[in-house]
């Protein structure tokens, strides 16, 4: 997904001379093709996120569309004031492209696990927050990021994530994407939790429980109309996110849907990660697998029967 996103930036830059890329000391070779083709619009900065975001805002105020790329935790925690003021207060079209959303960097520990990035970004006025599920969805969404007004946060997954999104679904910033009709339960996902939810729906189906999915590649602004429509036709809403349960997708749904069916939020516990291993292992331990999601749904439905 990261490669797809970066290659898309290169393609967008070919088509639109306002597009520039700003990395913060990324790995060697990153976007070499763009650097070679248009060196004047490729910037590799030092390890200086505050300056990187401020500089991007300055360029954006002068009509450029900067795509800023580094690790999600550094892009959300280190320079939060620059993002809040330089980008968001000015409503400047800065695009923050965040590597390793969620537990992608599990072996590197809590400094690198972006478990509250959606909450931080969602809290900022004027910020739009995207978390596509796979490389195809990323590729479909990227063209819309150029002209989108105001700042954008784009959460990237690990890469190699199973391709599940459908090419025939038009990509736009804002709309949620339903997978299946509303059923006994409606699973609301963002990012790579869509893959787990699709599998969970199959597991539940085998148990005689129908499950619809509303996937939210745009976390903010949330597509409350689609969510409300599905909420009206289901017994239980379950949000699923690779993010702490406080402040992310589940909270956003809670804030906007009232009077609907009961809502269960599945996500990461509200604490810094305490294990290493890898993303899959951590997700399994925390119940964010297809089986874990299906089990939580069964328990919720049983409790409420």
């Amino acid at each position: 997904m990261r490669r797809t996103c970066l290659d898309a930036i290169h393609r967008l830059a070919r088509a639109d001379e306002r597009v520039v890329f700003i990395g913060s000391d990324l790995g060697p070779g990153t976007l070499d093709a763009m650097r070679e083709e248009m060196p004047e619009r490729f910037f590799m900065e030092g390890v200086a996120e505050q300056n990187v975001v401020g500089t991007a805002a300055g360029m954006a105020l002068e009509g450029f569309v900067p795509y800023v790329n580094t690790i999600a935790t550094f892009l959300t925690r280190r320079c939060l004031e620059q993002t809040a003021l330089d980008a968001c207060l000015h409503d400047a079209p800065v695009r923050l492209v965040a590597n390793g959303g969620g537990l992608v960097y599990a072996p590197l520990g809590p400094t690198h696990c972006a478990i509250e990035d959606l909450a931080l970004m969602r809290a900022l006025p004027n910020m739009t927050v995207l978390a596509p599920a796979d490389a195809n969805e990323m590729a479909r969404l990227m063209p819309a990021t150029v002209d989108h007004p105001g700042p954008l946060y784009i959460r990237l997954a690990k890469g190699g994530d199973r391709l599940v999104t459908r090419d025939e679904v038009p990509a736009a910033i804002g709309p949620a994407v339903p997978y299946g009709d509303p059923g006994d339960v409606c699973l609301v996902t963002t990012g790579v939790m869509l893959q787990r939810a699709l599998e969970a729906a199959e597991i539940l189906e085998a148990d005689g429980i129908t499950a619809g999915i509303v996937h939210c590649p745009t976390v903010k602004p949330l597509d409350t109309a689609t969510l409300a429509d599905h909420a009206r036709h289901t017994r239980l809403l379950v949000t699923v996110e690779e993010h702490v349960v406080n402040g992310g997708l589940g909270t956003a749904v809670l804030e906007t849907l009232t009077g609907g069916p009961p809502l269960k939020r599945l996500g990461l516990p509200h604490r810094f990660v305490e294990n290493y291993g890898n993303q899959e292992g951590l997700l399994e331990r925390l119940g964010l697998t297809a089986e874990g999601i299906a089990g939580a749904v069964r328990r919720e439905l049983a409790e409420r029967a």
Binding site: N51, T55, G58, L61, E62, F64, P66, E81, L85, H90
Partner: peptide
Amino acid sequence: VEASTGALGHGLPIGLGMARAARLR
């Protein structure tokens, strides 16, 4: 007014981005 300031330490990075924009153009 070219930039909203008040929190300190923001003007030079923003100005750097503007100077870079002028150079690019």
